[in-house]
Amino acid sequence: MRLIRVKRETKIEKRFTPKMGELLTKVTYIRKHVFSIPIKTIHKYRETYYGKIKDCKSCELAK
């Protein structure tokens, strides 16, 4: 039985960029879990409309 596990999860979220406005995009979270309880988000990134991978720091959450 593993005590510490790293899991990858993809969600669809609303994001906002100044150039494009509001958009729906797939955001992938890489999280560290201890006993199946999420402890820390290690990294998160998103896939663009054209299939490129970008860091989520370039856009904010939509209000």
Results as ranks from 00 to 15, higher is better:
M1V: 15
R2F: 11
L3Q: 10
I4R: 15
R5C: 11
R5H: 08
K7P: 00
K7G: 03
R8G: 05
R8K: 15
R8S: 14
T10V: 09
T10H: 01
K11C: 07
E13Y: 04
E13S: 05
E13F: 04
R15Q: 03
R15C: 02
R15D: 00
F16N: 02
T17V: 10
P18L: 09
P18W: 10
M20K: 12
M20T: 14
G21D: 03
E22L: 05
E22R: 04
L23F: 15
L23V: 09
L23E: 02
L24D: 09
K26C: 07
V27M: 00
T28Q: 00
T28R: 00
T28L: 01
R31I: 06
R31D: 12
K32G: 06
H33V: 13
F35M: 14
F35G: 06
I37T: 14
I37M: 15
I37E: 12
P38D: 04
I39L: 14
I39A: 10
K40P: 00
T41P: 02
I42K: 01
H43P: 00
R46F: 06
E47T: 11
Y50C: 08
Y50A: 12
K52G: 13
K54W: 07
C56R: 00
K57W: 10
K57D: 15
S58C: 07
C59Q: 01
L61S: 13
A62R: 04
K63V: 06
